[in-house]
Design a protein around this nucleic acid. Sequence first.
DNA 1: GTAACATATGAATATTCGCTCATATGTTCA
DNA 2: TGAACATATGAGCGAATATTCATATGTTAC
Lengths: 110, 110
Amino acid sequence: MAHEAHQELVQEVKAKMPQADTLFELADFFKVFGDSTRIRIMCALFERELSVCCIADIVGMEQSTVSHQLRVLRQENLVKVRRDGKQSYYSLEDEHIQKIFEMGLEHILE
Amino acid sequence: MAHEAHQELVQEVKAKMPQADTLFELADFFKVFGDSTRIRIMCALFERELSVCCIADIVGMEQSTVSHQLRVLRQENLVKVRRDGKQSYYSLEDEHIQKIFEMGLEHILE
DNA sequence: GTAACATATGAATATTCGCTCATATGTTCA
DNA sequence: TGAACATATGAGCGAATATTCATATGTTAC
């Protein structure tokens, strides 16, 4: 390809892409899905809201680990918390999560 | 919650969850989306197939970096390659990718 | 053949990230 | 108030990972 044509193509594609900031945010968002502990936590929450210690038992990890990961999920607005007495009940923030999940499953099951 | 009720709930949720293996695979799949360089590469490929050096120019990174990341994308069956003379042209493997992308965007733009 | 270009890959490095331990904070009940 | 329980958080460690440099491999044109 000629040098000018190359540059032109590069500029054309760059122009059509979303802003760099948005793509960095998007990467951070998907990063959250890229850990098996967090995936399993989210998956458990598909069924119903759960307390921290229940989640820990379900995924078979320390309460502390789960608590740390729930914080990550909270920061990306993927889960919400509800305090009830001594316990914190976590649930999913919205239904995008389940759809993204399903689409991922479709891909790997091909 | 009583101890037996807790255990019962844990078992019930665990039973409804997909197999652990599947969830580990799923995490590996999403891990690929969790890096801004790879996200930008995929995003560039939404427009059209591109050679490695074009991609490198578009995302503003070394040819070597892009080549390494394209290998990661290949390993997860997210892109395919076509050799044409000296150049390798990469394109997206299927349309799930774009849908996952869009859903991620919807979430962060809320 | 060799030169020039495009891509792939191995090694080294720096950074990120998940997990665990110890402990702090928050809540209930006696 | 203090004991018991649930959750959150900070520090430290080890593993994973993204990038770069140097170089190998592959391809074309002369």
